[in-house]
Structure formats: structure tokens, C-alpha cells
């Protein structure tokens, strides 16, 4: 071996994988945060429903609280958090 690798320091960035660019409720980009938050990232995470639609967690929770029925605002299916 001419050269051996002793150690490696990796640097990577992460971003959300979502099927849309903007949150369907607040219309803000997923890379940004919901209107009530100041900083995007771990403090303002995204959630996915069983119907595969994706929102800021704060937005969908607010929506579900204001509705009599627990439905996805995009497809009107019953809303279930996708925990996979």
C-alpha cells in the first residue's frame, strides 16, 4: 500500500425530500419554515400523511384542530400520520 486512509471527515448537507416545493397550507417553501416559526430545520419539521401529502407539522396540526373532520386538505381523505 502506498497510501492508507487513516480517517475521514465527511461534510454533508441535508434537505427535505418532499413531493412538492411549497407547503399546501401556508404556501411557504418547504426549505423555509411555517409562518409561525423563525427558523427552518429541526424546529419546524415536515410530516407526511398516509395519502402521501406533506406539510409543515405546525400547519397541518393547526388545520386539523380547526376542522370537524380529520381530513387531508389536499385530497379530502381521512388524515393519518405516516410514521414509516
Amino acid at each position: 500500500m502506498k497510501v492508507t486512509v487513516k480517517s475521514w471527515t465527511g461534510v454533508a448537507t441535508w434537505r427535505w425530500i418532499a413531493n412538492d416545493d411549497n407547503c399546501g397550507i401556508c404556501r411557504m417553501p418547504f426549505d423555509s419554515c411555517c409562518p409561525d416559526c423563525k427558523l427552518p430545520g429541526d424546529d419546524c419539521p415536515l410530516v407526511w400523511g398516509a395519502c402521501s401529502h406533506c406539510f409543515h407539522i405546525h400547519c397541518i396540526v393547526k388545520w386539523l384542530h380547526s376542522q370537524p373532520q380529520q381530513q387531508c386538505p389536499m385530497c379530502r381523505q381521512d388524515w393519518k400520520f405516516n410514521n414509516k
Partner: peptide, 20 residues
């Protein structure tokens, strides 16, 4: 879940040992 990693290779550093 729901996050994608992207490597920033120009910032990654490796430590090598030469044997030649």
C-alpha cells in the same frame, strides 16, 4: 425520514499516511 443528504466533497477532508 424525509431527508436527503448531499455530500460536500470539497469540504470533506481525509487524513492519509504515506508509505512510499
Amino acid at each position: 425520514s424525509g431527508r436527503r443528504l448531499a455530500w460536500l466533497h470539497h469540504l470533506c477532508t481525509g487524513e492519509l499516511r504515506t508509505r512510499y
